[in-house]
């Protein structure tokens, strides 16, 4: 199986392949060592972007999605990179950053950094309906986040709380759920 490999030809590839290549590079790094934060957050950013495709947003279809973060997180840089490369695609993304929980407003995806000190309940109380809340702390899914990144066997996986999903008025595609670790 794959071990550490470096992507060396990024700049030579047309932009439209960028995301794919990025996935590849992420894939190469999928068995990253814990603590390799850059790679971890690149992967998490890609996953966040991929979630857009597999969630039935229920609202009128749009081609611009907002991904917001609470608290500072290394995910911002790779996310902005994706936003840059995908600005001509069907699914454009807009990145925003809430400095504090009180700022939280509507966004399609709300990424809750593990550095956020407030409890998830407080955050969830502020989140309007229709927002996919994604955490990265163990137990987040059980606590009510619709999605939660976990690292199992050095691989990035995600948990999904179906109840939280439906509470948010969202539906996840079966293709997504088959990959998710379902938490009640």
């Amino acid at each position: 199986m794959q071990t550490n490999r470096r992507n060396t030809s990024r700049s030579a590839i047309p932009l439209k392949w960028y995301s794919g290549l990025m996935l590849c590079s992420v894939f190469v790094l999928c068995s990253f060592q814990a603590g390799n934060r850059d790679n971890e957050y690149k992967l998490k950013a890609a996953f966040l972007y991929n979630f857009i495709q597999y969630i039935d947003w229920g609202t009128v279809s749009t081609n611009e999605y907002t991904i917001c973060m609470v608290g500072s997180s290394p995910i911002e840089a790779p996310l902005r990179e994706i936003a840059m490369t995908r600005k001509d695609s069907d699914k454009k993304i807009k990145i925003c950053h809430y400095r504090s929980v009180s700022e939280i407003g509507f966004s399609n995806i709300l990424f809750v950094s593990k550095d956020v000190e407030e409890s998830l309940d407080i955050i969830l109380a502020k989140v309007p309906k229709g927002t996919l809340v994604v955490g990265e702390k163990p137990g987040c899914a059980q606590d009510g986040a619709a999605m939660n990144f976990v690292i199992i066997d050095n691989k990035l996986k995600f948990e999904s709380n179906l109840k939280a999903l439906s509470t948010a008025g969202l539906k996840a595609s079966s293709q997504l759920l088959k990959l998710a670790i379902i938490k009640e």
Binding site: M1, L23, V26, F27, L43, N50, F158, Q175, L179
Partner: peptide, 14 residues
Amino acid sequence: ANSVSALMFMDQDA
């Protein structure tokens, strides 16, 4: 078609 999501989320096991 069914491998798309697995490929996207790097899920070799799935």
